[in-house]
């Protein structure tokens, strides 16, 4: 039953993405690309691009995107309910505990060990996305597009050195890729 599969997958994404925003990316990739083949790696990267450019949490954005593609509008609603269900229970419980004890000491210690792992997983997802992105494009060499590599280095440099706005960098990459493809 596709609705149950969607619900269960997105409950897992909601339950295990700790640390907000980017932390959800590796989990979405595992569930939608690797386990269920609902998206190709290229579609997944497009999804992250779209999620970056639109308001709203990436987990909710991807639940709607994947839900619609797999099972239409009801699929989108079910996937979104799945992704917020763990939050509703856990955060409500924590709010209750917080009001009673005004502290959450043990939580801090567990989180301090989770954070480094989440960073590693985000980096790993980023590398997988980079590999997908550079394996198509112009001027191929050993299965890698030279123009894509050059665009990546430029984008990375602008982000690190000049702290350009990420959305601006992404749009610029899209336009540069289009222009380069017309030249070659």
């Amino acid at each position: 039953m596709i609705y149950l599969e969607l619900l269960w997958s997105f409950i897992q994404i909601g339950l295990f993405s700790i640390g907000g925003g980017y932390a959800a990316i590796p989990l979405i990739q595992t569930q939608t690309v690797e386990i269920h083949n609902w998206l190709s790696m290229s579609e997944f990267t497009d999804l992250v691009t779209i999620a970056e450019m639109t308001p709203g949490p990436i987990a909710v954005n991807s639940a709607t995107f994947v839900g619609i593609r797999i099972a239409g509008l009801p699929g989108a609603v079910i996937a979104t309910i799945g992704v917020i269900l763990p939050s509703i229970f856990i955060v409500s419980l924590l709010a209750y505990i917080y009001r009673k004890y005004k502290s959450a000491k043990g939580l801090d210690s567990i989180l301090s060990c989770l954070r480094p792992a989440v960073v590693a997983l985000i980096a790993s997802a980023g590398i997988a996305m980079l590999i997908t992105a550079v394996s198509t494009g112009e001027v191929m060499m050993y299965g890698i597009s030279i123009t894509s590599i050059v665009i990546f280095i430029l984008a990375f440099f602008c982000l690190r050195k000049f702290k350009f706005n990420p959305i601006l960098v992404m749009v610029a990459c899209g336009i540069i890729n289009l222009i380069v493809s017309f030249i070659f």
């Binding site: 990267t45 997908t132 990375f156 899209g174």
Partner: peptide, 23 residues
Amino acid sequence: KLVLEGMQIGVAAVILSVSIDLG
């Protein structure tokens, strides 16, 4: 398709840059 392919490169750069900051 070409614009989206270019943007895929950009988003990979954004994610990797964020993970370096977090790291």
